[in-house]
Amino acid sequence: MSATTGFGWGTIVRLGLVQTALGAIVVLITSTLNRVMVVELALPAALPGGLVALHYAVQILRPRWGYGSDLGRRRTPWIVGGMALLALGGLGAALGTALVAGQPALGFVVLVVSFLAVGIGVGAAGTSLLVLLSTGVAPHRRGAAATIVWIMMIAGFVVTAPTAGHLLDPFSGERLVAVSGGVSLIAFLVALAAVWGVEPARAPAAPQPPGPARPFARVLAEVWAEPEARRFTVFVFLAMLAYSAQELILEPFAGLVFALSPGATTKLSGLQNGGVLAGMILVALVTANGRGKLASLRLWTVAGCLGSAAALAAIAACGLAGP
C-alpha cells in the first residue's frame, strides 16, 4: 500500500472476505436458530427475539470499540479477536439451543452468554474492519470499497444459508451443533487469512493533539451534535429495525404455516438474501453514472423501503391460505 493510492482492489476484496465470514456465522444465529427455538422446541417467540435483541443491544458500544482501536492505531487485533469471539458465540448458540430441550436452565445460560459474545464479536470485528478500510483506501475508491465489502457480507448469507440447509436435513440437535461449529471454524480461518499481513506490524503514529486525549463521551457528543450525522444515524436505526424484524419472522413463519423443515427454511433465508444481493448490485449499476432520475439514491432508498414492506405484506397474506 502506498501513501498515495492506498489499498488496491485485490486487497479490498480480500478484506471483504472478513465480512463474508461474519455474515456466514450471523445468518445461522439470527435465522436458523430462531426457527428451531420457535418451531422444533415450541418455545415462545419472545425468547429468540430477546436473544437477538441482546446481540444487537451490546453493539451500541461499537463507537467505544472504534475509539479503542483508534487509540491503539492497529485494527488487525480487534478484527481477529472479534471474529474469534463471534465464532465461539456461534458454536455456543447452537449448543445452547440443543441443550434447552433437555436442560433448560443450562441451555438458557449458554444462549445468553453466546449471544452476548456474538454481539461483541460482530461489533469489534465489523467496526474495526470498516475503520481499516476508511484509513487504508484512497478517497476516490471509498464508495466502491464500501459497496464491495457490504455485498460480500450479503454473499456470505447467500452461500451459507442454502449450504447449511442441505446439511441440516434430517434435523437433529447434534447435526445443528456440528454444522454451526463447522461454519464458525471455516469462517474464522477465512477471516484470519484475509487480514494476515495486510496491516503493518506497527501502524504509523498519528499526530497527537496537545494535551491529554479527549474523553470518549465528549467525542461522541461532538459527533451527535452534527445534524447530518444525527439524521443519518436515525435513518440507519429505523432501516435496521425493519430489516431485523422481518429476519426474525420469516423462518418460523415458513415452518409453522407451511410445515417446511429447518433445512428448507434455511434455504428460503438464502433466497431472501439473494434478493438483497441482487437489489444492491442493481442499484450500484443504475446509479454508477450519476445521471438521470434513476440515478437518485434517495429514489432507490424510498422505493426499496416501500417495496420491501409490500413484499412482506404479500408473504403474510399467503399465510391466510395455509400450505
Rank of each mutant, 00 (worst) to 15 (best):
T301W: 10
L192D: 05
V219T: 04
V39Q: 10
I79C: 12
V236S: 10
Q272K: 11
G90N: 08
Q208C: 05
G119Q: 14
E40Y: 14
T266I: 14
A203R: 09
L17M: 08
V13R: 05
R291E: 07
W196R: 09
A178F: 05
E40V: 14
A125K: 15
I25F: 03
L285S: 03
N273M: 02
V179L: 10
A314H: 12
A310M: 08
G304S: 01
V110L: 05
G263T: 06
G121K: 11
R14D: 00
L85C: 06
I151F: 09
A161G: 02
W78V: 05
S269H: 06
L130K: 03
G307Q: 04
V39M: 04
V183Q: 08
V109H: 13
M152G: 08
L282C: 04
I12Q: 07
G290S: 10
A193H: 07
L95I: 02
S134I: 07
G92N: 04
A311D: 02
L47Y: 06
L297S: 09
R214A: 08
T5Y: 05
G211M: 11
L15G: 02
G322Q: 14
A21E: 06
L167K: 11
L15F: 00
S2N: 06
E251N: 11
A321Q: 07
R141L: 07
S134G: 12
A101D: 14
V257C: 04
A221V: 15
A201I: 10
A144N: 05
E199P: 13
P170W: 08
E40A: 15
A193R: 10
V13H: 06
T287L: 07
L86E: 09
L294Y: 01
L85Y: 10
L129W: 06
L111R: 13
A213R: 02
W65F: 08
A57C: 12
F216M: 02
V159S: 09
L116V: 15
A178D: 00
V109R: 09
Y67C: 01
A187Q: 04
R142Y: 07
R214G: 00
W9F: 13
G23W: 01
P63V: 05
L176R: 08
V223F: 06
G165M: 06
W78G: 10
A191M: 09
G10K: 05
T135M: 07
A3G: 02
R230M: 13
G165H: 08
L99W: 10
P252G: 09
F216Q: 02
M153Y: 12
G68C: 14
G304P: 09
A87G: 04
V177F: 01
A254P: 09
W78D: 00
R35I: 11
T266V: 07
F253S: 02
V302S: 14
R218W: 09
Y56Q: 07
P104Q: 15
S134E: 15
A178N: 03
R298N: 15
F115N: 01
S114A: 15
V198D: 01
F232G: 13
A206V: 13
A101T: 08
L130I: 06
A311K: 03
G82W: 01
A144L: 03
V179E: 12
A311V: 06
S184I: 13
M152C: 11
G182W: 09
M240I: 14
G173D: 05
G66C: 10
G82P: 06
A316L: 06
